[in-house]
C-alpha cells in the first residue's frame, strides 16, 4: 500500500508514451494530478489531442503499472481543462526528443490567432541547422508535423507547438 503521491509519480516515469517511447507520461505532461485519498490512488490524465488514440493505451498502462506495484485501488479520470500544451513538456523531454530525432516544439506557445502567424525556425535534429522546410503540417501522429532539412537533406518529425 502506497501513501506518498511522489512514489506514484516516480513509478509513472516508467510508463512510456506508446507513440513516442523515448518519453514517459510524466515527461509528456499528461499526468495532471496524483492524490491518494482514503488509500485510493486518484489520477487525472489529459489528452494531448482530442482524438489521440494513444490516450486509452496510456490510461490502461498507467493502471496496470500501478496495480502491479501497489495494492491500492486506482481511479483514473480524463480531464479536459486546462487544455494540454507543449509548454508542459519538460526541458528533459525536449532533450530526449532531439536525441531521438524528433525536433522539439518551440517554447511558450506563440499567439496563433493570426492565420499565417510567424513561425520560429525548426531545428534539424540531425545537424542542428535551422535551414529547414515544412513538408506537411500533419505527420505520423496527431502531435507531429513533417519537415526536411535543406542542409543535410534529412527528413524528420517536428513536435507541433500547441
Amino acid at each position: 500500500m502506497v501513501s506518498d503521491p511522489s512514489d506514484v509519480f516516480k513509478l509513472l516515469t516508467t510508463v512510456k508514451d506508446p507513440e513516442i517511447p523515448v518519453l514517459n507520461v510524466v515527461d509528456m505532461g499528461v499526468i495532471r494530478r496524483v492524490e491518494i485519498v482514503n488509500d485510493i490512488i486518484e489520477i487525472d490524465i489529459t489528452p494531448t489531442y482530442s482524438g489521440c488514440p494513444a490516450m486509452d493505451v496510456i490510461a490502461a498502462n498507467v493502471r496496470t503499472t500501478l496495480e502491479r506495484e501497489f495494492s491500492n485501488q486506482v481511479k483514473i479520470a480524463s480531464v479536459m481543462f486546462p487544455p494540454w500544451t507543449t509548454d508542459w513538456l519538460t526541458d528533459d523531454a525536449r532533450a530526449k526528443l532531439m536525441a531521438y530525432g524528433i525536433s522539439p516544439p518551440e517554447k511558450n506557445t506563440a499567439d496563433k490567432s493570426l492565420l499565417f502567424g510567424h513561425r520560429e525556425a525548426v531545428v534539424c535534429p540531425k545537424c542542428q541547422s535551422k535551414n529547414t522546410e515544412r513538408i506537411s503540417e500533419f505527420g505520423s501522429t496527431a502531435c507531429k508535423a513533417h519537415y526536411r532539412c535543406v542542409d543535410c537533406k534529412e527528413p524528420f518529425d517536428h513536435f507541433k507547438c500547441i
Binding site: 489528452p47 489531442y49 482530442s50 489521440c52 506537411s136 500533419f138 505520423s140 496527431a142 513533417h146
Partner: peptide
Amino acid sequence: LEEDIALTNISLDLIGQARS
C-alpha cells in the same frame, strides 16, 4: 501521401471533438 495523412489526422481531431 502527405495529404492522405493530413486529411485523416484532421478527421481524427474532429472525431475526438465529436466524442467530447
